[in-house]
Simulated scan of single mutants.
Amino acid sequence: MKRLAVYCGSATPADPRYMDLAREVGRTLATRGIGVVYGGGRLGLMGAVASGALEAGGEVIGVIPEALAGSEVANRDCTELHVVEGMHERKKAFTDLSDGFVTIPGGVGTMDELWEAISWAQLGYHSDPVGLLNAFGFYDHLIAFNRHMAEVGFIRPAHQNILIARDSLPDLLDAMASYVPHTPIFRMKADDL
């Protein structure tokens, strides 16, 4: 994995653990020689991931929509900053520029990015690992819900391991590095669906 898209919140929670975590994620990826592709902002966890990676000498590629780039939230310190038309182009760029996806705590936008990465993997638009860092138990309920969707039958058996969830970043990165792509829907026969 040469580059990972990091999905996270642009907010700054009151609990400082989240900002510390984001900086550590950026720093760890940089020290492992993994470039960061992220939302291009300088605020909240997003900015902390970029700062952590840059301070450790890592590559940071920001992808930000035009509407946000002009409102002083764009991080001009990135190695590269791509300004795109909108959110669809942003998420496509994340996929095109990355070898996988890591989601750390965030809100609605973060969930949108995570679920799209999983959906695109199911379909076959990419075959990269999709990781979820369940720091502080933040995603316990989401992991349980994902398991529930599988148990009910809304996630096919072939796709139940697309989401790779771990409680620590080293464990998550190791699991992602050993990810074996599944059979995407585009290559399944109607009887398998």
Score class of each variant (00 low, 15 high):
Asn75Glu: 06
Val152Glu: 11
Glu113Cys: 11
Gly131Ile: 07
Glu24Val: 02
Ile143Cys: 14
Leu54Tyr: 05
Gly26Trp: 02
Gly86Met: 05
Tyr38Cys: 15
Met149Phe: 07
His141Arg: 12
Ala56Gln: 10
Leu29Trp: 10
Gly137Glu: 07
Asp128Gln: 14
Phe138Asn: 07
Asp128Thr: 11
Val83Pro: 04
Gly86Glu: 11
Trp115Glu: 12
Asn146Asp: 05
Glu55Asn: 06
Asp128Lys: 15
Gly62Met: 07
Thr110Glu: 11
Pro157Gly: 10
Thr28Val: 14
Gly57Asp: 10
Lys91Leu: 07
Arg76Asp: 07
Leu45Asn: 05
Ile143Thr: 08
Leu133Ala: 02
Arg23Asp: 00
His126Met: 04
Val37Ser: 13
Pro157Ala: 14
Asn146Arg: 00
Leu123Glu: 05
Asn75Asp: 14
Met111Ala: 09
Thr79Lys: 10
Gly106Asn: 00
Asp128Ser: 15
Glu116Pro: 05
Ala53Trp: 08
Asp112Asn: 12
Val152Lys: 15
Glu85Arg: 15
Gln122Tyr: 02
Asp99Ser: 07
Arg23Gln: 02
Val25Pro: 02
Thr110Leu: 11
Ala135Met: 06
Asp77Gln: 06
Ile143Trp: 01
Phe136Leu: 03
Ala144Ile: 00
Leu132Asn: 10
Ile104Phe: 01
Asp128Arg: 14
Gly26Phe: 05
Lys92Asn: 04
Glu151Thr: 12
Glu66Asp: 03
Val36Asn: 03
Gly124Lys: 09
Thr95Glu: 12
Arg23Phe: 01
Ala74Ser: 12
Val73Asp: 04
Gly62Trp: 13
Leu114Arg: 09
Thr79Gln: 03
Leu123Phe: 10
Ala69Lys: 11
Pro65Thr: 12
Val36Gly: 03
Met46Arg: 05
Gly106Ser: 02
Phe101Met: 09
Glu85Pro: 05
Asp128Gly: 05
Gly44Ile: 01
Asp140Ile: 08
Ile118Trp: 02
Phe138Trp: 15
Leu114Lys: 12
Asp99Cys: 01
Val60Gln: 06
Tyr38Thr: 13
Gly52Gln: 11
His82Leu: 12
Asp96Ser: 13
Lys91Met: 09
Asp140Ser: 09
Asn134His: 09
Gly57Val: 06
Gly26Lys: 07
Asn75Val: 03
Asp140Glu: 13
Met87Asp: 04
Ala69Met: 13
Trp115Cys: 14
Asn134Ile: 11
Gly131Gln: 03
Ala50Lys: 00
Val152Tyr: 11
Gly44Lys: 01
Ala135Trp: 02
Asp77His: 04
Pro157Cys: 13
Ala135Arg: 08
Pro129Cys: 10
Met149Tyr: 07
Val83His: 11
Ser71Glu: 11
Ile143Ala: 07
Phe94Lys: 13
Leu123Gln: 08
Arg147Leu: 08
Glu85Gln: 15
Gly62Glu: 13
Gln122Thr: 02
Gly26Pro: 01
Val73Tyr: 03
Glu72Tyr: 02
Val73Arg: 03
Thr28Gln: 13
Val130Asn: 05
Tyr38Trp: 14
Leu29Phe: 07
Pro157Asn: 12
Glu24Ser: 15
Leu142Lys: 01
Thr95Tyr: 04
Val130Ile: 02
Ala50Met: 00
Lys91Asn: 06
Gly107Pro: 04
Trp115Ser: 14
Gly137Phe: 05
Pro157Ser: 10
